[in-house]
């Protein structure tokens, strides 16, 4: 199956949505080990780019609300490294105009990502 990559996205990792409502999105993703990026990030030491974590959270929002346009990465903190074999559970809650995402591995938070989307977008 061909996975359509939104034009602003870098990864073709598949997001599986477990739950999506106006206030909460829960999804799962596994890093794509075959992504050519790992040849250069880094040679002999494949490491998931931190910006991919940001994109996974954005992709989970898009999976639930495809027409959203990202305006700002308000904040992102990386709490621990993520292995390429890890399954990431993404939980996103609406907080006014923000989307607060937590990325967890085996129940332990690995990153916190807060995104803001353009207002007035249908």
């Amino acid at each position: 199956m061909t996975i359509l990559i939104p034009p602003e996205c870098a990864t073709n990792a598949r997001i599986d949505l477990d739950h999506a409502s106006g206030d909460e999105i829960v999804g799962r993703v596994r890093p794509d080990r075959d992504d050519p990026v790992f040849a250069g990030h880094y040679p002999g030491f494949p490491l998931l780019p931190g910006v991919y974590i940001v994109e996974y959270v954005h992709r989970a929002v898009l999976a639930a609300m495809p027409s959203e346009i990202l305006a700002e990465l308000v904040s992102c903190r990386f709490l621990r490294t993520i292995d390429l074999d890890d399954e990431l559970v993404i939980t996103i809650r609406r907080d006014g105009g923000l989307r607060r995402g937590t990325v967890a591995v085996s129940g332990v938070p690995a990153a916190e990502v807060v995104l803001r989307y353009q207002e007035g977008n249908p």
């Binding site: 002999g44 490491l47 305006a71 904040s75 990386f78």
Partner: peptide, 22 residues
């Protein structure tokens, strides 16, 4: 130039990253 001997650059945090047009 080489992570195995020179260390690995990693991101710790981003704050206030505002995006314009592609």
């Amino acid at each position: 130039p080489t992570v195995l001997t020179d260390g690995v650059p990693i991101a710790g945090a981003f704050e206030g990253i505002r995006f314009g047009r592609p």
